[in-house]
Amino acid sequence: MFEQSIGKRSEKVKNTVERGAVKKFAEAIGDLHPLYIDEAYGQRSRFGENIAPPTFPRVFAYGAIEGLVLPPKGLIHGEQRYHYTRPLLVGEDVYCFLEVKNYEEKAGKSGQMGILTLGGHGLDDAGEAIFTSEQVIIISAAVRRMMRV
């Protein structure tokens, strides 16, 4: 179904680690640590700035991959990875894109299901990687049948 998409990438999208968005996100995950939200604390920290929680890249836009259209509902999030070379700093710009790392199909209880692996990338102004992520999405047999209609 998505075999032909393997290796395809989106165009980079510029995102900003917005102070208000970080605070809202930290609150939503129950982690209002001053390192995330207290400006003076951030300035005194080794980073000289507040940082964002490790799962914050969920907020970023990554652009669309040509030919990869996923249904808005019915997908199952199977697995998630993040790899960081340094924390995300509040106020900085991050250039994000997505790539299709793999797609395979396996026999499930109710038919063939699809397993899609997407890789996310976040680069700084100089093009250096800040983080990479990997998301494994399971497309059930029922959802695959709906997508064909």
């Binding site: 490790p54 799962t55 199952i76 999030h77 199977g78 697995e79 998630q80 990875r81 993040y82 790899h83 960081y84 070379t85 340094r86 924390p87």
Partner: peptide
């Protein structure tokens, strides 16, 4: 730094 998080749901 937490360099890596990997979880399965």
């Amino acid at each position: 730094l937490v360099t890596d998080y990997h979880i399965r749901f």
